[in-house]
């Protein structure tokens, strides 16, 4: 019987965050009980997280199931396809930040809507373009003219 991969990864993440807290606690100085320093609280949280990660590892709440084995057997392409929303949404938000600086709010919003729209494979090209155009116009009307947010509509370079 193997422990579920999910439990193993959860314990590893908890342990890593715990070590980071412990290290930063020592770095900032723990102080004494009478005079606690900035690192005392992170140090305490680090200890708690490390203990919890060990408990999670020795007391797993789920076993390795058939789904996990099935997932591993799937081809790389099928597994990569599952990350499509992840990829498109990440790129769309990063693009929004960059384009807002170098192209203005209109270009940034249009890019955000177009790129994120393709995160769902069921969205057709026409649907995405329509949402992009209409929602960009609505955003400008609401946020720029309606709420007077300090946004630059167009900027170059």
């Amino acid at each position: 019987m193997k422990t579920s991969k999910r439990e193993l990864h959860a314990a590893m993440l908890t342990f890593a965050v715990g070590v980071l807290c412990l290290y930063s606690g020592l770095l900032y100085g723990v102080g004494t009980l009478t005079e606690t320093d900035s690192g005392s609280y992170p140090f305490l949280l680090g200890v708690v997280l490390i203990i919890l990660s060990i408990l999670l590892l020795i007391m797993p709440a789920e076993r390795r199931n058939v789904d996990e084995d099935h997932e591993e057997a799937q081809s790389l392409w099928i597994r990569l396809k599952r990350y499509r929303p992840w990829l498109f949404i990440t790129i769309s938000v990063i693009g929004f930040v960059i384009l807002n600086q170098y192209g203005g709010f209109v270009a940034a919003t249009l890019f955000l809507l177009l790129c994120s729209g393709f995160a769902d494979p069921k969205n057709s090209f026409i649907t995405v373009v329509s949402i992009g155009a209409l929602a960009t116009i609505a955003s400008v009307l609401i946020f720029y003219y309606g709420l007077n947010l300090p946004l630059t509509l167009f900027t170059w370079g």
């Binding site: 769902d120 929602a135 947010l149």
Partner: peptide
């Protein structure tokens, strides 16, 4: 699938308007 890109715009503009930084 039509709603979520609009929600994403609201999220990004909402985050920006809380501090006026990207």
């Amino acid at each position: 699938r039509i709603l979520y890109p609009i929600i994403l715009v609201l999220i990004c503009v909402g985050a920006y308007s809380s501090s006026y930084t990207m």
